[in-house]
């Protein structure tokens, strides 16, 4: 290819130089030049036999199919982004929808141990529950709910009511539960009221007031608010 290109280039120059050369040669050269240009120029510069001289007078850079140094550098740089995206994908991974409920019982047992230890349930005798409630709310706000057996008791959407399962994942606006029927369900926190039970105590979580990331809750300071909704 390179050799023929060189020859064509020569012809092109010659044809421009010898405008007054003989007709046959000129026609030959014209045909060659046009075919060459049509092969190598981008489509918008495609030309016919008549206007080829006009086009030639413009300066057009022919495509170089080899990789230049700049392109090489760009390629190297490009390699970084997909890797980062991959990493990010992994970060925001969601759970698969085919799980077995029984596998998660150990997680639940672990959580029960953790929670009863956190709330000191065994030490507390059944005295005034009102004094305890303030202490508990602060603790519950900073507690972790992965592995908790939770039930939706009240909701604006009636189909959510009665769903119960083990919490697998907690995000800002939703809880992912696994139900005993081996189904993974994603339940929004808004307008839902959840309950869970430890020993004899039953706690209720108001979803609307609970709409923080589970990691943010640990560091945040909360104000007590009264609720009117629902």
């Amino acid at each position: 290819m390179a050799e023929t290109d060189a020859v064509n280039d020569d012809l092109l120059h010659q044809s421009i130089k010898r405008k007054k050369s003989s007709g046959k040669e000129r026609q030959k050269a014209q045909a060659m030049v046009t075919s060459f240009l049509n092969n190598h120029l981008p489509p918008r510069y495609r030309i016919s036999n008549e206007n080829y001289l006009q086009v030639i007078q413009k300066s057009i850079t022919l495509e170089n199919k080899g990789i230049t140094k700049i392109q090489k550098a760009k390629k190297k740089r490009c390699n970084i982004t997909p890797y980062r995206e991959k990493h990010r994908e992994k970060l925001h991974c969601s759970l698969e929808l085919s799980q077995r409920f029984d596998d998660y019982m150990p997680l639940h047992n672990l959580w029960v141990d953790y929670m009863s230890c956190l709330l000191n349930i065994q030490k507390r005798s059944t005295t005034s529950t009102c004094s305890l409630s303030k202490e508990y709310t602060q603790k519950l706000l900073k507690a972790d709910y992965h592995g908790c057996w939770i039930t939706v008791t009240r909701s604006r959407c009636p189909s959510y009511i009665g769903i119960s399962g083990i919490v697998l994942q907690e995000t800002k606006n939703a809880l992912t539960l696994i139900a005993p029927s081996n189904k993974v369900k994603c339940i929004p926190k808004t307008n839902n009221i959840f309950t869970f039970k430890i020993g004899d105590l039953v706690f209720t979580l108001y979803g609307n007031q609970f709409r923080y990331r589970s990691t943010d809750r640990a560091a945040r300071k909360f104000k007590l608010k009264s609720t009117i909704d629902l």
Binding site: E96, S98, Q99, R100, D103, Y104, P106, L107, L110, W111, Y114, D144, H146, G147
Partner: peptide, 13 residues
């Protein structure tokens, strides 16, 4: 959470 991560490794299909 550290213990939960350990138990989570053992479950799942």
């Amino acid at each position: 959470m550290y213990q939960a991560a350990h138990t989570a490794l053992t479950c799942g299909k």
